[in-house]
Write a protein that binds this DNA or RNA. Structure first.
Length: 565
RNA sequence: CGGGGCGUGGCGCAGCCUGGAAGCGCACCUGCCUUGGGAGCAGGGGGUCGGAGGUUCAAAUCCUCUCGCCCCGACCA
C-alpha cells in the first residue's frame, strides 16, 4: 500500500472526548471515528487491525473444530420470551417494533438464536459435540458507554456455543475452548491471564475470564505466584493473612465523636488505625427486609458475594432516610449492638477484639466492642473484597493483585437455554435429553483497544507484529532514493503488510505519523543510504536502529518475525 | 437514572461574568522557501456560535425550553 493512496487522518492533538490512552490513540491514529455515543466507524487502518484479530480468532476456532456461521443482528422477541430473558435482560436490550407491530431486539448475545438453530436440525447424539461460532456485530444499550470502543454500545464480538450430549462432553468442550483462547491471545501478542469469574446474566456456574494485563484495566485480578490460582477479585475468597494478637476484652466505652462519619474520620479522630474501626452498612433485601453488614473499616464490601448470600434476591443499600427509620441514627454512627434487624459480620471480625463500632446514636461510637459479648451476629460470612496481605485460597501463600481488561469470557451453561427452549436430542439410550451447552465470547473490538492500552508509549501505539495493520513502513528522505524504496517495497510486500510513505511531507511529519500508528518496523532511506547504500531499520518498540544493505533486509525481517517475543 | 461539566470553521480552544463588527493555534488551498523528528514567510477559503423560543435598538454573551456529548456513580461480555 502507498500511504498517498490510503486514508489515515491522523490528529496532532488529543480529541477532548477521549479520556483513556487507547481511545485517544485510536482517534489520533485515524483508526476510528465516533458516530454517536458508543457507536463508532472503523476507518481503513482500524478496520485492517480488526481483521487481523478476527483472522487469528477464526484460524484457532477452526483448528478447534468449531464451525463458523452468521446469525441475524435483529432477533424476534418470541425467542427471548421462551427463555424469560425478554423480561429480565433490562434496558441493555434494545427493543423495537417492526411495521407489523411485532417485537424485535438488536442482538446483545445469541444463545436463543443458536439454540433455535440446533433444536430444529440436530436430532441425535451422533451429531454431537457441535461448536458453532460467529464473528459479528452486537448491540448492548449500555447505560454509560465509555472509553471509545473499550465499552461501546455497538461492538464486534466472536461468540461461540457448544452443544454436548452430557456433562463430561461439556467439560471437554470447555477445556478445548479454554486452550483455544490461550492460543488466540498468545497469537495476538498479548500478555494476559485466565481467571475464575462471576457468571452474571449469562448464567451457569463455572466461568473464566481472559484478562489483558494493563494498569488501566477496569477489573482487579487476584493471583498466586506460587500455585497459579487466579480469580477476578469479585470472586476471590478473602482469607485474612494477619494473625490477631489475643488480648483481654476491655470494658465497652461510649465516646463522643461529633461530626465524624467515615471509618477514616473516626480513626483519625480517635487516634486508632482504621482497621480498628468497624463500619456497619444497612441493606434492603427484596424491598422487604433490612440487614446490617459489619466490616472492618479498611475492608471493602463485595456485592457479588452478597448475591450468593442472598441467593438471587434483589438487594440495595438503604437510603439515609431508611437508615434513620430502621436504626434511629444516621449513617456513620451505625453499629451492630442492640439492632433489631439481622446482623451479618464479615469473617475478618472473628477473633478480633476491642474494636470501635457506631453507637446507633448520632455523634457517638463505642470503644472496645467484641464479637460475642457486645453483639452476636446472626451470621458470619465472607462478604468483603480480598486485598493486599490476604492469602491464596488454594495454597495460603500471599496473594498478588493486578489490573486487567476483560477480553474473553467462557461459561458452562448446562441446560439453562436448552431446557426452557426444549432443545432436545435422542440419546444412545433412546431418551430425549436437553443439550448441555457452553458459550464462549471474545470482544474483538475490545481486544484492539486493550492491545493499545497494553502496548504504547508517549509517541503512540506499538502494535504487536501479529496484529499490526501494517508491519513495515518504508520512508525515503530524498526523491532520488525513491526507485530503491520502490524495489524494497515490492519485495517485502510479497510476504508482509508494507506501507510505502510516498507523501510529499517533511521527514518530521512522516516520523511522527509512523510512530503514532504503531508500525513495528520502520525502514528509512536517508543519510546512510546516500553514503554507502545502507538502509536504516528502526524497531518501534525498542527504538533500536540497525543498518543493512537492501538485499539483506528480507532476511532480517524474517528473523525479527520469528524472535518477536 | 442521580451528580458535575461542555457544545463557537475539520481538530484544540479563547470570547460569555459586565450584550455593541466572530477570534486564536493547528489542519486545508496557492506561491516562495525548507527537507532526519509535527519548519518559515506571504496570500487565501471555510463558522445558521448545537436547536427553538423569549428579553433588547442590538444576543455567541441574559432568560426559558430542548437536543447532543463527556466525566463521576449505580450497572455490566
Amino acid at each position: 500500500m502507498r500511504w498517498s493512496k490510503f486514508f489515515i487522518p491522523t490528529l496532532r492533538e488529543d480529541p477532548s472526548e477521549a479520556e483513556i490512552i487507547s481511545h485517544k490513540l485510536l482517534l489520533r491514529a485515524g483508526m476510528i471515528r465516533k458516530l454517536a455515543s458508543g457507536i463508532y466507524n472503523f476507518l481503513p487502518l482500524g478496520f485492517k487491525a480488526l481483521k487481523k484479530i478476527e483472522n487469528i480468532v477464526r484460524e484457532e476456532m477452526n483448528k478447534a473444530g468449531a464451525l463458523e456461521i452468521l446469525m441475524p443482528f435483529v432477533q424476534p422477541a418470541e425467542l427471548w420470551k421462551e427463555t424469560g430473558r425478554w423480561d429480565v435482560y433490562g434496558k441493555e436490550l434494545l427493543r423495537f417494533k417492526d411495521r407489523k407491530e411485532h417485537d424485535f431486539c438488536l442482538g446483545p448475545t445469541h444463545e436463543e438464536v443458536v439454540t433455535e438453530i440446533v433444536r430444529k436440525d440436530v436430532k441425535s447424539y451422533k451429531e454431537l459435540p457441535l461448536i458453532l461460532y460467529q464473528i459479528a456485530v452486537k448491540f448492548r444499550d449500555e447505560m454509560r458507554p465509555r472509553f471509545g470502543i473499550m465499552r461501546a454500545r455497538e461492538f464486534i464480538m466472536k461468540d461461540a456455543y457448544s452443544f454436548d450430549a452430557d456433562w463430561e462432553g461439556l467439560d471437554k468442550s470447555y477445556q478445548l475452548m479454554y486452550e483455544t483462547y490461550e492460543r488466540i491471545f498468545t497469537n495476538c501478542g498479548l500478555k494476559f491471564k485466565a481467571v475464575e469469574a462471576h457468571t452474571g446474566t449469562i448464567g451457569g456456574d463455572v466461568s473464566h475470564e481472559f484478562m489483558v494485563l494493563a494498569e488501566t484495566g477496569e477489573d482487579v485480578i487476584a493471583f498466586c505466584e506460587k500455585c497459579g490460582y487466579a480469580s477476578n477479585i469479585e470472586l476471590t475468597p478473602a482469607i485474612l493473612g494477619e494473625k490477631y494478637p489475643s488480648e483481654p476484652e476491655k470494658p465497652l466505652e461510649k465516646v463522643y465523636t461529633p461530626g465524624v462519619r467515615t471509618a477514616q474520620e473516626v480513626a483519625d479522630f480517635l487516634g486508632f488505625p482504621v482497621s480498628k474501626i468497624t463500619k456497619t452498612l444497612i441493606y434492603i433485601i427484596d424491598e422487604t427486609e433490612a440487614v446490617a453488614l459489619c466490616l472492618r473499616g479498611d475492608h471493602e464490601l463485595n456485592e457479588v458475594k452478597l448475591e450468593k448470600l442472598f441467593s438471587g434476591k434483589t438487594f440495595r443499600m438503604a437510603t439515609e432516610e431508611e437508615v434513620k427509620k430502621i436504626v434511629g441514627a444516621s449513617p456513620g454512627f451505625i453499629g451492630p449492638k442492640d439492632l433489631k434487624i439481622k446482623v451479618i459480620a464479615d469473617k475478618a471480625l472473628e477473633g478480633y477484639s476491642n474494636f470501635v463500632i457506631g453507637a446507633n446514636e448520632d455523634e457517638y461510637h463505642y470503644l472496645n466492642a467484641n464479637l460475642g459479648s457486645t453483639f452476636k451476629p446472626d451470621l458470619i460470612a465472607d462478604i468483603r473484597k480480598a486485598k493486599e496481605g490476604d492469602l491464596c485460597p488454594k495454597c495460603r501463600e500471599p496473594l498478588s493483585f493486578t489490573r486487567g481488561i476483560e477480553v474473553g469470557h467462557i461459561f458452562k451453561l448446562g441446560t439453562k437455554y436448552s431446557e426452557p427452549m426444549k432443545a432436545m436430542f435422542l440419546d444412545k439410550d433412546g431418551k430425549m435429553k436437553p443439550f448441555i451447552m457452553g458459550c464462549y465470547g471474545i470482544g474483538v473490538s475490545r481486544v484492539l483497544a486493550a492491545t493499545i492500552e497494553q502496548n504504547h508509549d508517549e509517541n503512540g501505539i506499538i502494535f504487536p507484529w501479529q496484529i499490526a495493520p501494517f508491519q513495515i513502513v518504508i520512508v525515503y528522505l530524498k526523491e532520488t532514493f525513491k526507485e530503491e524504496a520502490e524495489k524494497i517495497y515490492k519485495n517485502l510486500s510479497q510476504k508482509w503488510d508494507v506501507i510505502l510513505d510516498d507523501r510529499e511531507e517533511r521527514p518530521g511529519v512522516k516520523f511522527k505519523d509512523m510512530d503514532l500508528i504503531g508500525i513495528p518496523l520502520h525502514i528509512i532511506l536517508g543519510k546512510r543510504f546516500e553514503e554507502n547504500r545502507e538502509v536504516e531499520v528502526k524497531i518501534r518498540k525498542t527504538g533500536e536502529r540497525k543498518y543493512f544493505k537492501p538485499e539483506n533486509l528480507e532476511n532480517f525481517v524474517r528473523n525479527f518475525e520469528n524472535e518477536k517475543d
